[in-house]
Design a protein around this nucleic acid. Structure first.
Lengths: 233, 233
DNA sequence: ATGAATTTTAATGTTGCCTTAAGGTTGAAT
DNA sequence: ATTCAACCTTAAGGCAACATTAAAATTCAT
């Protein structure tokens, strides 16, 4: 459960070829929550919508430069920021002056160096926060973050309610294994949980609405008739 | 007075030519307390004697490698360490695995990049110590300075009271994650904190009045019904 | 001791989560 | 085909959890 790889990365780069390459590298090295934007304006709206945990910015962008974008992002979210730059291109500006950049990487770069620097920055920033052991589950359709009590599906994130959180926690802890209805009820309502089977069903539906692509044709939260449910990851 | 330049730097490099170059660069860029050692053993004795504030280690050394030296140094002093490495030379080991390196630089490098990275590492490590242990959080609407126990929103600055400070500290330490009501009560009132839930709510309101644009429509201090609160940054 | 600032209590208002319940599907067994 | 059981879906109301406010109690500095 490498928490670093579960962080949401915002990639801002206008050159399509380089963008595709960066995305491929990230995905290959295990980052599965990558959001991309080719312009400053799109980057800002994405930041508001997806709440990334770190951003990688090219210095040169079609509708502005990375420095001002950094300022805008930092105003909204205090996340670590990594710059992409050509050799000699304002290197001292980036790290030296207090612009707020956390690191920068010089083009052309070794693919691994990219993810290494990103991981290092994330580790520094979130080291203390990552001690907490609430798991992050990655499904094909979404990411379930029990610590944040939220699930991110595509570009929207939903908050989990108390019951949903309790039920999903039980399912995540037993990922890929069937959890009986009784067990789930106990997790959500305590020992005296008889009579909540119907209510459980409603909550299952609500959870499916948040984690499934098509809630009526579940692919992750599978019901096993007569037994209970299982979360397939 | 630039504190960073006053820090003591330990340089461990066996190749005389490169060593001289590094020393020159450091001196030229204002670092005036530079200690050098060509071997692991000498580096260790120097560490004990001079108590450096940061170390720059070559990966390859005549009587051992930089990794084990890192371990030895970290055992004695918890200082930031920067690695010198040739391209491709065990790059992933250095940053990827939690070896404790704070940064690394690939040979051959731009002279200025060297001091920039070193400065950045020093700033990161000692920035909080130079001011105060307490973190500063930047939210869209305000800046929370726990060290000063104040929050600045627009043009006005509010002081935090003791309870507000305790609660906000717990929330900041767990930024973006849900903190249960119980935990918050414990942080503010100690172990025997049952019965303060209502009081907590009042304090939450007061905090919101200081950190939110519209305290009645919170954007940063979010309540997660049935679970607790989370501070979204 | 006095007054201001902080914390707590308590009473009332509000919200949206949880639950209920009614009707619909599905699939297996007869 | 019919029956039955298990599960699904939906919407609406109740109620617990949270919000809000003001005033009382406490603390603290002067």
């Amino acid at each position: 459960m490498d928490q670093v790889k579960d962080k949401k990365i915002l990639l801002v780069e206008d050159e399509p070829e380089l963008l595709r390459m960066l995305e491929t590298i990230l995905k290959r090295d295990g980052f599965h929550q990558v959001f991309v934007a080719p312009t400053v304006s799109e980057a800002l709206s994405l930041t508001a919508k997806c709440r990334p945990d770190a951003a990688v910015l090219d210095v040169m962008l079609p509708d502005g430069d990375g420095f001002t974008l950094l300022g805008e992002i930092k105003k909204v979210r205090d996340i670590p920021i990594l710059f992409l730059t050509a050799r000699g291109e304002a290197e001292d500006k980036i790290l030296g002056l207090g612009l707020g950049a956390d690191d920068y990487i010089v083009k052309p770069f070794h693919p691994r160096e990219f993810t290494l620097r990103l991981s290092a920055v994330l580790k520094r920033t979130y080291a203390s926060a990552m001690k907490n052991e609430m798991p992050v589950m990655t499904l094909p359709a979404c990411v379930i973050d029990l610590g944040k009590a939220e699930v991110t599906k595509g570009e929207e994130t939903f908050l989990l309610t108390a019951k949903e959180h309790a039920i999903l926690t039980a399912l995540c802890r037993n990922a890929n294994r069937v959890v009986t209805t009784d067990t789930l009820c106990q997790c959500a309502w305590g020992d005296d949980s008889y009579g909540y089977e119907n209510t459980l069903m409603v909550h299952i539906r609500h959870i499916r609405e948040k984690i499934e692509i098509n809630p009526s044709d579940p692919a992750a939260l599978i019901t096993v008739k007569g037994l209970g449910y299982k979360l397939v990851v």
